[in-house]
């Protein structure tokens, strides 16, 4: 107790260092316990699905499973394409040109998940001849864009590519 200041400083340093190092250790221990719940490497590896589209008639659509989620592949008729392209961006809650949502106007490929709370919308339903989500009444047009209802954004377009005329690779 003769030199309280000096003694105090050194003690503080060791205690502070111990607490800091201990906190780092706890943090480093917790991370693996959190990260283990992220997608594992076998899940991440299942990135892509190839779909044969040669059998799809104009106006029809198929639903395929990709990463556990439904993907709508719709072969649109000329009227549907015209309808989608003619809409003014000002009328859209989430303005996106139809051209930006497709690689080939005849084919619309999108995640069939309502952007409101994740239900799967019904096709050829709703006020805009596109999709209608039965959960909370969101209406989508022939480009999968939100037109009416609680959903905040258009339906999402996944990464995809035309491998050849008859095959689409999603992912």
């Amino acid at each position: 107790m003769d030199k309280p200041e000096k003694k105090g400083n050194r003690r503080d340093f060791i205690f502070t260092a111990s607490y800091t190092v201990g906190a780092i250790g706890i943090g480093a221990t917790i991370w693996p316990l959190i990260d283990q719940m992220n997608p594992d490497s076998s899940v991440k590896a299942l990135a892509s699905t190839e779909v044969d589209i040669s059998q799809i008639e104009p106006g029809k659509s198929v639903t395929v499973l990709w990463r556990g989620k439904p993907v709508f592949i719709k072969r649109r008729t000329q009227e549907e394409i015209a309808e989608a392209q003619s809409v003014s961006l000002d009328d859209l809650p989430h303005p996106e040109k139809d051209q930006d949502r497709v690689k080939n106007p005849e084919w619309l490929v999108m995640l069939g998940i309502c952007t409101h709370l994740g239900c799967v919308p019904l096709s050829d339903k709703g006020e805009y001849n596109g999709w209608f989500c039965p959960c909370h009444g969101s209406h989508y047009d022939t480009s999968g864009r939100i037109r009416k209802g609680p959903a905040p954004t258009n339906m999402e377009i996944p990464k995809y590519a035309f491998v050849d005329d008859n095959t689409i690779k999603i992912g």
Binding site: P32, L33, D35, Q36, N38, D40, S41, S42, V43
Partner: peptide, 13 residues
């Protein structure tokens, strides 16, 4: 073995 190989930090846990 899935835990040991694929799960993030699975081998450690």
């Amino acid at each position: 073995e899935h835990i040991m190989r694929d799960v993030n930090y699975g081998w450690l846990i």
